[in-house]
């Protein structure tokens, strides 16, 4: 499969990694956990660059933000106290859904984003947390909203860049602020047919201060349902609103049919999971729907 590979590098820092990526002239491939790289089995790869020694495995606070190094594994996200505390443990919980326990010991957060799958399970929770990614290339280092990055993760634009970290700004805190992650697969270990992450804050009178909804596997890239989010603002969260939001979400998504599920099914499930995510958020704050 990888018999054209001529060299395997283990750069000790990002600069070195970038240099190797540059000199690979498009035939070099970054390897983090390798779980996607290996399965993809791209025959044309000549150089492999293992970035797990480049100092990118960390979970830190920077100011009010949480910063997650690109090669942090799913298993580390699951187990991290900081992640379990952030946004009600949203990222820890979502990480637990990423493949089997074996896969999660290898799979990294950076790989999950950089692979650019519309079904990547970490994308939707990060989208509702308004995360950004930090990209570096030979010339620059810049921060990019995650949504923007995901739209072109596998394009030429990022081909010679490294995703070094994911920055999660301090989530809106305070009373009535809750988060939820919902995933539907055919079996317990599965690529999402649909996944939904949501965040919600209600004011003291049960009105929606803000809502964030993201959906995966229902569009070319994981997406925020901004129409639905707008509609919720200032409204009382009741069954009627949930039904309306469900219908709005179904309009916003653009799923495809494949071996896993039909487009119609994904559309319908988008509504159901969105409603369940919002219900879970509101249930936590003691709002009785």
């Amino acid at each position: 499969m990888f018999d054209k590979v001529e060299a395997f590098y283990r750069p000790a820092n990002v600069r070195e990694a970038l240099r190797l990526l540059q000199s690979g002239k498009g035939q070099a491939r970054v390897v983090a956990g390798g779980t996607d790289v290996v399965v993809e089995g791209d025959d044309s790869v000549r150089y492999l660059i293992d970035i797990t020694h480049a100092g990118l495995s960390y979970i830190r606070r920077r100011g009010t933000a949480s910063v997650i190094g690109a090669t942090t594994t799913m298993a580390e996200l699951e187990a991290s106290d900081a992640m379990q505390a952030l946004a009600g443990g949203l990222l820890s919980r979502a990480a637990r859904w990423c493949g089997s326990a074996l896969v999660r010991n290898l799979a990294t957060l950076g790989g999950n984003m950089a692979n650019g799958s519309p079904a990547a399970d970490m994308a939707t929770p990060l989208l509702v947390l308004d995360a950004s990614v930090v990209m570096v290339n030979a010339r620059s280092r810049h921060k990019l909203p995650l949504a923007e990055y995901l739209a072109g993760a596998r394009t030429k634009r990022h081909a010679r860049s490294l995703l070094v970290e994911v920055v999660v700004p301090e989530p809106p805190n305070g009373k009535g602020c809750r988060w939820s992650f919902q995933k539907l697969g055919r079996t317990a270990v599965d690529i999402s047919l649909v996944n939904v992450a949501a965040g919600l804050q209600l004011d003291s009178r049960g009105r929606v201060k803000w809502a964030r909804i993201a959906l995966g596997a229902v569009a070319p890239a994981p997406m925020r349902a901004s129409g639905a989010e707008q509609r919720m603002k200032g409204r009382i969260l009741d069954q009627a609103l949930l039904a309306e939001i469900g219908a709005e979400v179904a309009r916003e998504v653009s799923p495809i049919s494949d071996a896993r599920a039909s487009a119609e099914y994904r559309r319908e499930i988008s509504s159901v999971l969105t409603r369940r995510a919002l219900e879970e958020c509101s249930a936590h704050v003691g709002c009785s729907l």
Partner: peptide, 15 residues
């Protein structure tokens, strides 16, 4: 791998 289970088919030997 260092005490943690992994799929050896998902990993380059060089890793």
């Amino acid at each position: 791998l260092d005490g943690m289970p992994i799929n050896s088919c998902l990993m380059f030997a060089a890793q």
